[in-house]
Every structure is written in structure tokens, then in C-alpha cells.
């Protein structure tokens, strides 16, 4: 398809991008363009102005300090997947980024664009919710941060305001004794996750002291599963299977490839497998 007519502005700084957003009603921010451009080509999105923030170096960093990792909104999935810092401190985020699309998509798509678009089959959101990450937003009136669990509001809907730019994400580094894993059941056409299960467990002295499981693809937003029953156990396969079977989605999404019921079933299976993989890494 051919997109409708639009104006293109390239921002030289976050501040300039914010003022361009204010000056142009219904403008859309574009980083890698891998969510926006397909929507424009199908004419599902027809923004009068596209503001390109893809070259803002101030949003490109990945750093670690004080037990926390900070990822700017513009590192591409390929950069995140290959990041030594993340491999050392938060490998599950790099693992999930490596599952996104194909090499070309990973070379263009950015983490900020990914989570701002909030596709239910996206690989990053369940990991951020699992980690208890915070999403940082900037507007002309200041900055604020939102817990990832609150950031994803509904299908393709997030907490980003019309005048805001997503600047970075902070996530706690994984401590010693903690293992985490992301397992993906890929849609054969779109490459999105039909189900993506992100799990973590912390083990001390052979006993589980903390566990988490968040499943993407089943509902409009990432679905957290209560796996607190694992705390105090030795993380046996049976205990893990029982915990993962607690996945519940009131209104599961479905398509011609996978119905809602089936997604819930696969979510339980992949939740179980992700927890077991996390255990083996702990």
C-alpha cells in the first residue's frame, strides 16, 4: 500500500521533539518505524506529521548502576540482544529482544517503539512487567515514571500522554540466586508471540524465596500469574506445573491461528516451561 500524505520532521533533541509534538496536533513520534510505518501503509494510521526521534543519541544508552539497569528508548532490539551489560545484569531482557521479528526488524525496531505500540504479542512487555521495571516519560511539564504493570493499559493502549516522550526504562538487575527465562510460541505469519512466557525464580539454600510469571499474548496486556505457591518449595516439576496452571485470562484474545482457549492452554504450558528454565538458571 501507499501511505497518505504526511509531513516529516526530524527532531534534534528531546526538547525539540516535545515542542514539535505540541505544535502539531495528531503528530506521531517515530523511532525505528516498525510499528508505525506498516500502520501508515495500510492507512490505519494517517498522522499529518511524523516526528522522527530515531537519531537522538541522548535516548540510546544502556547502563547499569546501583543494582538497576537503565535502557534508553532507542536501542534497537539487536543492540539489546547483544548487550554485554544486559547479558551480565538482566539477561532475560536481552533474551526476549533476540526473539523479536527477524534480523532486519531487530536492526531497526527499538525498545521504546515496541512498548509504546503495545502489541499484545510483543515480546518485551511481559518481561518488563515480570522484572517490575519502570517506564520513564518526559513532557514539557516534567518527567514521571510508571510501573510497567500499570503502563500497559489495553490493546495497543499505554499510559503515554499525547505530549509525552518515552525516554527510558529502569529495571532491577537480577541478583545472585535468581534465574529468569523468556519462552516464545511464535506466530508463523506475523512472528509475534502467540504466547510469550517470562518467568523468574530466586533460590537460596535449595529453597525458592521468590518467583514470578508473566504471560504475553493471551490477553490485551501482559498477564501476571500468582506463583507465590512456589515460595518455600524446592521447585519440583509438579509444583511448577501447579503454579503455572493458575494462569487465568478473563477475556483471552484469539485469531484464525489460535483461539483464546488455546492461548490460555499454551500459556500454562509455556509458563511451566519458562519457570523450569528459570529454575535451571538460578
Amino acid at each position: 500500500m501507499y501511505q497518505a500524505q504526511f509531513d516529516y520532521r526530524r527532531a534534534g533533541s528531546v526538547d525539540e521533539a516535545l515542542s514539535l509534538l505540541q505544535e502539531n496536533e495528531d503528530a506521531k513520534l517515530m523511532a525505528g518505524g516498525h510499528s508505525l510505518i506498516p500502520m501508515m501503509k495500510l492507512r490505519l494510521a494517517q498522522p499529518p506529521v511524523v516526528i522522527d526521534i530515531g537519531r537522538l543519541d541522548e535516548l540510546k544508552g544502556i547502563s547499569e548502576a546501583g543494582g538497576s539497569v537503565r535502557v534508553g528508548s532507542l536501542p534497537t532490539h539487536a543492540v539489546i540482544a547483544a548487550s554485554d551489560g544486559l547479558a551480565a545484569h538482566c539477561p532475560v531482557l536481552a533474551e526476549a529482544a533476540g526473539h523479536i521479528g527477524d534480523a532486519q526488524v531487530r536492526n531497526r525496531g527499538t525498545i521504546g517503539g515496541n512498548i509504546a505500540h503495545a502489541d499484545p504479542g510483543s515480546d518485551i512487555p511481559p518481561v518488563l512487567v515480570l522484572l517490575g521495571a519502570s517506564v520513564h516519560l518526559q513532557s514539557p511539564s516534567g518527567t514521571r515514571s510508571v510501573a510497567a504493570g500499570d503502563f500497559f493499559q489495553d490493546l495497543l493502549m499505554t499510559d503515554v500522554g499525547e505530549d509525552e516522550i518515552l525516554t527510558h526504562v529502569d529495571a532491577p538487575a537480577l541478583g545472585s540466586g535468581t534465574g529468569a527465562a523468556y519462552l516464545k510460541f511464535e506466530h508463523p505469519a506475523s512472528g509475534y508471540a502467540v504466547v510469550g512466557a517470562a518467568a523468574s525464580v530466586t533460590v537460596q539454600n535449595g529453597r525458592c524465596t521468590a518467583a514470578g510469571l508473566v504471560v504475553g499474548g493471551v490477553s490485551a496486556t501482559p498477564t501476571a500469574v500468582d506463583v507465590s505457591s512456589l515460595v518455600g518449595t524446592d521447585l519440583s516439576d509438579d509444583a511448577i506445573a501447579a503454579a503455572a496452571s493458575g494462569l487465568d485470562a478473563e477475556d483471552p484474545i484469539g485469531d484464525i491461528f489460535a483461539s483464546g482457549d488455546y492461548r490460555v492452554h499454551v500459556g500454562k504450558v509455556y509458563g511451566k516451561r519458562a519457570l523450569a528454565a528459570a529454575r535451571d538458571r538460578a
Binding site: 506466530h187 508463523p188 505469519a189 506475523s190 484464525i256 491461528f257
Partner: peptide
């Protein structure tokens, strides 16, 4: 299944 998002 009219697009490559649905047709595998």
C-alpha cells in the same frame, strides 16, 4: 488471511 501478518 489477507496479509502476511495472518497468512503464513
Amino acid at each position: 488471511s489477507g496479509s502476511l501478518m495472518d497468512y503464513a
